[in-house]
Simulated assay, not measured.
Amino acid sequence: MTSDQFTEIKMKQALHAIVPLAALALTACESEAEQQADTTEDRIEMQAEQSAAAAGDEIAALGLTERQLLDADLVSQDGTELGDVEQVRRSASGEVSGLLIEIEDSDPDRYVEIPLSGLNATEGGVFGDTDLQTDMTAQDLAAMPDAAVAAG
């Protein structure tokens, strides 16, 4: 083995050791609150994906499937983005009872539950995505209580 080959092998080994350490360092830099927020968001997304997969192509509400609802943005009457639909909430009988919304630009992330009444599905955005238009304002959403987020 030449010294150049030996050096190349050692550099690759060092790189493989550095990448996990960098990831660990980034995690260590996050505060406990940030780690909890990430865990909550991951749990909400996982629950939403499981529910959407189970619902399939069945219309859930507002003429949309659960997957389409999850892809929608909540917008005001003038088109200002207010938040993202994170989860479709259902009653004990399986009917859609509301939507879990992550409020736009909230830090830390805030989630509120809104009813379906007063929502209209519209095509919007640059890509023709579906938006859910509401009469609520950003201030209305901010004044709502935090939604209960189920564990695990």
Rank of each mutant, 00 (worst) to 15 (best):
A61D: 09
D109N: 12
V75P: 05
I114E: 15
R67W: 06
D73L: 11
L100T: 03
E86Y: 00
D105H: 04
E113L: 03
D57Y: 04
A72V: 11
L82G: 06
L62P: 15
V88I: 06
I59W: 04
R90Q: 09
R67T: 14
L74F: 03
E86W: 02
A60F: 04
T80N: 02
D73E: 14
G98S: 05
G94V: 13
L99Q: 05
A61G: 09
A55Y: 02
R89I: 14
T65L: 10
A52D: 15
D84H: 10
T65P: 07
L62K: 12
A54C: 00
D57C: 01
G56H: 04
V75Q: 09
V88L: 02
G56P: 07
D84S: 04
I103R: 15
G94Y: 07
S91A: 13
D78Y: 02
E102D: 03
E113R: 08
L70G: 03
A61E: 11
A92L: 06
S51N: 03
R110T: 12
R67C: 02
Q68G: 02
L100K: 10
D78V: 09
I101R: 04
L99A: 06
R110V: 06
A61C: 07
A53Y: 00
L74H: 01
A61V: 11
G98A: 06
R89Y: 00
L70N: 07
G63H: 06
L62I: 14
E95A: 15
Q68P: 00
S97E: 15
E81R: 13
D105Q: 02
E58R: 15
G83K: 10
R90T: 01
P115F: 04
I101H: 06
A61P: 05
D105L: 00
D78M: 11
P108L: 01
D84C: 03
E95W: 00
D71R: 05
S76C: 08
L99N: 06
D57A: 11
S93F: 01
L100W: 05
G79S: 12
A55E: 10
I114M: 08
V75G: 01
S51M: 05
Q87I: 00
G94A: 03
T80A: 15
I101K: 02
A61L: 14
E86I: 00
L70F: 03
D109M: 00
I114D: 14
D57R: 08
V85R: 07
D71I: 00
L69T: 10
G63M: 13
I114L: 11
L64D: 09
S91Q: 13
I114W: 09
Q87R: 11
T65I: 11
G56R: 09
V96E: 07
